[in-house]
């Protein structure tokens, strides 16, 4: 299965706001844990590991490129 990269969210602003709100009042470590829990919950919901691996690869490439650009 291939990672679906088309826009699929009905209310993107609400989703973004919910993510930011979830982190409010948390310290760095708790924020990281929250993100990790989200990733694990969603990965399990998706189930198809090859899809998750594609998402990991894209995110990793972007993060590495951004690090290179700011270094």
């Amino acid at each position: 299965m291939s990672l679906d990269l088309s826009p699929r969210l009905a209310d993107p602003d609400a989703l973004y706001a919910a993510l930011i709100a979830a982190h409010q009042g948390l310290d760095e470590a708790a924020s990281r844990r929250l993100d990790a829990q989200l990733v694990l919950l969603l990965a399990n919901h998706i189930g198809a590991q090859d899809v998750v691996f594609q998402a990991i690869a894209i995110a990793r490439d972007l993060a590495a490129a951004q690090e290179g650009a700011t270094a």
């Binding site: 990790a36 829990q37 990733v39 694990l40």
Partner: peptide
């Protein structure tokens, strides 16, 4: 720190949800 966050996230989830 990221690896610790994932480890602790797994453990916290595992208490409530068998999937973890």
């Amino acid at each position: 720190p990221a690896a610790r966050a994932y480890r602790d996230a797994v453990l916290s989830l595992a208490e409530r949800f068998p999937f973890a």
